[in-house]
Design a protein around this nucleic acid. Structure first.
Lengths: 249, 249
DNA sequence: TGTGGCTATCTTGCATACAAGACAGAAAGC
DNA sequence: GCTTTCTGTCTTGTATGCAAGATAGCCACA
């Protein structure tokens, strides 16, 4: 997605680009999102960037430090617990409320699980992170309820930020197997069990976190050190996020 | 809502004032929220009003019609169904996940139910509307999870807008009794039953709606204008477009 | 009488200007 | 050398200005 001069699509694409960057683990928690930088990247004025930031703030994705800047949230340990609890509530409630798994639904999930397998085989960790979160969003999509999808998307984004902060190692296989079990229960029409498995799965992932690790010690330091660039795409790994500011106007 | 100019607390008070106005059924769906109007009322410039509108838009409370204005949402019948479904999912999931009802929790809910009784006795319908929605928010507060509280607050606001559009008469007593039953189950420690009762309660309220009533008066103005060709005049019942304030200079 | 088009005015969309807080780094004092 | 203060610069906060779409009402015209 080349941002640059996509001309007239820039309305909500700032918001979507950032969320998608988080969902695919390309934007780390604590990343500074300068209004001027984003304005330059998207070829718009600060006003529109600001609007996007406001929206993202109400979605719990970003926060502002007055006169210092906008930053991708760095959930605290308490936040992390709350996010997982909310996800258990919503996802279990959702699965319990489901009556059937349609044929398209089954196909969609099967396709997804295959993608997970492929990414695991390829060792594509970023894509894997994305897929692991996306599985839950896919389930929400099966309900056809856009409200729930939105809620879960934002919670998933926060989950990914949490895992970037507190997850030392990534148990992809374990997660994948959890997904498979949930899928099997759904396929069997046993949504009560699917809900229970989902809670169990989220518990597992939550238990895999080291919430004592860092409250938030290096938020700015991490910025200053910047992250190792990995690929060559657009806004994702913007290492120019402020060290030795090269001016700009 | 005589907010007037509350001086320097106006950061998020625009947002909060509007939501609170909706929660207490003082602001009707379809109400126009002009930027200039609000800017004058709150004694700030359009910029800050605009930010508040953006936030409310991502919360699903308000929408913008390009170059025409901001309006409190008028949920369609499909929206209404989705909102109730989302509430069932979240609230049932929440109750099921609860382990105990603390003493403070019991007291808070008892106090609330008494307030409901008082408002019914006093015939204060606006307050009653507020309390009927607030009961569910109170339950969310018991969980101590701010994320879930926020989700349910916004869903409740939309629910109230829905009821203003589609609910012919207000079955306060029925709702109150539903709340009491849920409370009793919680007090008995039977949260599974409380969840079931909650779903039942929401179903009841939803069933009390007349979702065939009006398609949607304002958001798609030209539809309603081109719609009445010659069919039975009975259900036309065009409500006036702007329930409140349409003056301003 | 009816109909089409024009204009005056109101609305939001978006950019920009300016103010003020926060910070970093130099300079001064000890 | 160490600390403190001060100042330049960068950031967001907020207001305002201008442009463009939408609407309503008027007026010409058949």
């Amino acid at each position: 997605m080349q941002d640059s001069h996509t001309s007239e699509t820039t309305q909500k694409s700032i918001e979507a680009t950032i969320v998608s960057g988080i969902l695919s683990a390309k934007i780390r928690p604590g990343t500074r999102l300068g209004e001027n930088q984003l304005a330059g990247l998207f070829g718009v004025s600060r006003t529109r960037v600001r609007e996007a930031m406001m929206r993202l703030e109400t979605r719990g994705i970003v926060h502002v430090s007055p006169r210092r800047g906008w930053f991708v949230v760095e959930p605290s340990a308490e936040d992390a617990i709350a996010v997982y609890e909310a996800r258990r509530v919503v996802e279990a409630g959702l699965l319990r409320s489901m009556g059937v798994l349609t044929d398209e639904g089954r196909k969609a999930l099967e396709t997804h699980l295959n993608e997970e397998r492929n990414a695991m085989a390829a060792g594509d960790r970023q894509r894997l992170t994305y897929l692991m979160g996306d599985f839950h969003i896919r389930i929400a999509e099966l309900s056809g309820n856009a409200i729930i999808v939105d809620i879960l998307r934002d919670l998933t984004a926060r989950t990914i930020l949490i895992s970037m902060l507190y997850q030392s190692e990534f148990h992809a296989v374990q997660s994948h197997e959890g997904h498979c079990r949930i899928f099997e229960a759904m396929q069997a029409g046993d949504f009560v069990r699917a809900a229970a498995l989902s809670v169990e799965h989220l518990d597992e992932v939550e238990m895999g976190l080291d919430l004592t690790a860092r409250p938030d010690p290096l938020s700015d330091l991490r910025n200053s050190l910047s992250l190792p660039p990995k690929s060559a795409s657009s806004l994702s790994q913007q290492p120019d996020l402020k060290p030795t500011s090269s001016k700009e106007q």
